[in-house]
Design a protein around this nucleic acid. Structure first.
Length: 264
DNA sequence: CTAATCACCTGAAGGC
DNA sequence: TGCCTTCAGGTGATTA
């Protein structure tokens, strides 16, 4: 579910909710969801600051870091009081010394909470955050890749943060066919794609993220951006630009929506 | 290097 | 109602 905009909303809320709080214990209800990679040290300490790169949430403690990736169905739910798991899908709970808690709910169990010395242990293949990228670097990466655009944009090592939804949206608004080779773009097309990606992500943040089914913010609220999709989930519906039926095909292993008329 | 497939999991939705 | 198949926002390993 969560791509860059959804993770950004969660991070912004968490900053206000848990910065400065001290972790008392972490209860791993489903052990597979929590990876302890710090020898002889339980997860404790004060949360100094919270960062985000791509879809990763990085909570910086005194000596270590707690990194969370929500993958498909993960949610971080904050509560002012101490309470047991709110339902059977809660995989871990962080209890703070002031009595509040953060519950990590994840239906499909793909998400992870990592306790690490450095976030690089799990983020060595994650590139520059999509909102921190500059157009020159983006153009250089495109020029040096023979991948199709869809696969290129989904690959987190180039640009971190885009997932299936915002890839399809950005390619539609750029007028680019998802199978188009990255190194075939002109300077104009590259610049347009760069700006479109940034605008699509920013608009989604302004709309509190997209909720297809599982995404919730830390208070359990859904996003609103799903009401503004231009192509994603619009198979067989008329293109908002030209009226042609939107097609859905499988590309780079993912459902890919596009307008056969507008995207070349 | 690039592309395709599978694996990891559970639940919802559609076909029969 | 029930069974079976397919699909889902992600990523990493493996195999052509």
């Amino acid at each position: 579910m969560p791509e860059l905009p959804e993770v950004e909303i969660v991070v912004r809320e968490l900053r206000g909710q848990i910065t400065g709080k001290t972790i008392q214990t972490v209860q791993a209800i489903w052990p597979g969801s929590v990876e302890q990679r710090v020898d002889r040290s339980p997860v404790t300490g004060q949360i100094q600051r919270i960062d985000r790169r791509g879809k990763y949430i990085i909570m910086r403690l005194d000596e270590t870091v707690l990194v969370v990736h929500l993958r498909m169905t993960g949610q971080l739910l904050f509560f002012d009081d101490t309470r047991p798991a709110v339902d059977g899908h809660v995989r871990a709970i962080i209890y703070f010394s002031d009595g509040s808690c953060l519950q990590f709910k994840d239906v499909r169990k793909f998400g992870r909470m990592y306790h690490l010395v450095s976030e690089q242990e799990v983020m060595k293949n994650v590139g520059t955050d999509a909102l921190e990228m500059d157009s020159g670097h983006f153009r250089d990466m495109l020029k040096n890749s023979k991948m199709g655009l869809k696969a290129f944009l989904l690959n987190q090592k180039h640009l971190a943060g885009l997932g299936n939804i915002y890839c399809d949206e950005a390619l539609f608004l750029s007028g680019l066919y998802p199978g188009r080779k990255a190194n075939s773009l002109s300077a104009t097309e590259s610049g347009r794609l760069f700006r479109t990606i940034r605008d699509v992500l920013q608009a989604a943040i302004d709309n509190m993220g997209s909720t297809i089914s599982d995404y919730r913010d830390t208070k359990g609220n859904k996003g609103n951006n799903q009401n503004y999709f231009k192509v994603y989930s619009r198979e067989n519906m008329p293109c908002k630009h030209c009226g042609t039926r939107i097609k859905k095909i499988k590309m780079a292993g993912r459902g890919t929506h596009f307008c056969p008329q507008c995207q070349k």
